[in-house]
Computed example of a mutant assay.
Amino acid sequence: MTKILALDTSTDACSVALSIDGVIQEDFRVIPRQHTRQLLPMVDQMLSSAGLQVKQLDAIAFGRGPGSFAGIRIATGTAQGLAFAADLPLLPVSTLAAIALKASREHNAERIVSTLDARMNELYCCAYEMRDGLPQALDKEIVSSPENIVLPEGDNWFAAGRGWIYLDSMSAAVQQAVCTPELDIYPAAGMMCELAVAAYVQGEGVSAEQAQPVYLRDEVSWKKVADQKKKGQ
Rank of each mutant, 00 (worst) to 15 (best):
G63H: 10
L91C: 11
A85H: 08
A50S: 15
R37T: 06
G51A: 04
P89H: 01
Q53V: 08
D58R: 04
A75F: 04
R37C: 00
G71D: 00
V93I: 15
F69I: 12
A98D: 09
R64M: 14
F84S: 13
Q80E: 03
M46S: 13
L88F: 00
G63K: 10
A83D: 07
A98L: 03
M42W: 07
A85Y: 06
Q56P: 06
L47M: 05
P89D: 02
A61T: 13
Q45T: 14
A70K: 02
A61N: 13
T76E: 03
Q45P: 00
M46R: 11
A61C: 14
G77T: 12
M46L: 13
I72K: 05
S49N: 14
T76D: 07
G63L: 08
G77E: 07
L82I: 01
T36F: 00
G71E: 05
A70Y: 04
L96P: 10
L47Y: 02
A75R: 01
T78I: 09
A85P: 10
I60F: 01
D87C: 01
G71L: 08
T78H: 07
M42V: 06
Q45H: 06
V43F: 12
Q80Y: 03
P66Y: 02
V93P: 11
D44Q: 14
S94M: 05
I72P: 06
L52S: 08
A98K: 03
D87N: 15
R37K: 12
T78F: 01
D87R: 12
D87E: 15
A75P: 01
F62C: 13
P66K: 04
F69Y: 15
R73I: 07
D44I: 06
Q45M: 05
K55P: 02
L82C: 03
T36W: 00
L47F: 04
L52G: 12
I99K: 00
A83C: 10
A83Q: 05
A50E: 05
V93R: 04
A98G: 11
T36G: 08
L39P: 11
L91Y: 05
I72N: 09
P41E: 11
A85R: 10
K55H: 14
A70I: 08
A86W: 00
M46H: 05
F69Q: 09
A83E: 07
D58E: 03
T36V: 13
L90V: 10
A50I: 08
S49G: 14
A79F: 05
L91W: 02
Q53H: 13
L52W: 10
M42P: 09
V43H: 12
F62I: 12
P92E: 05
G67Q: 03
A70M: 11
V54Q: 04
T36H: 01
Q38K: 13
Q38D: 13
G65A: 01
R73S: 10
T78R: 03
A97R: 11
G51S: 07
P41T: 14
R37P: 00
G63Y: 11
Q38H: 13
R73Y: 07
F69C: 08
A75G: 14
T95L: 05
V43Y: 09
A86T: 02
P89K: 06
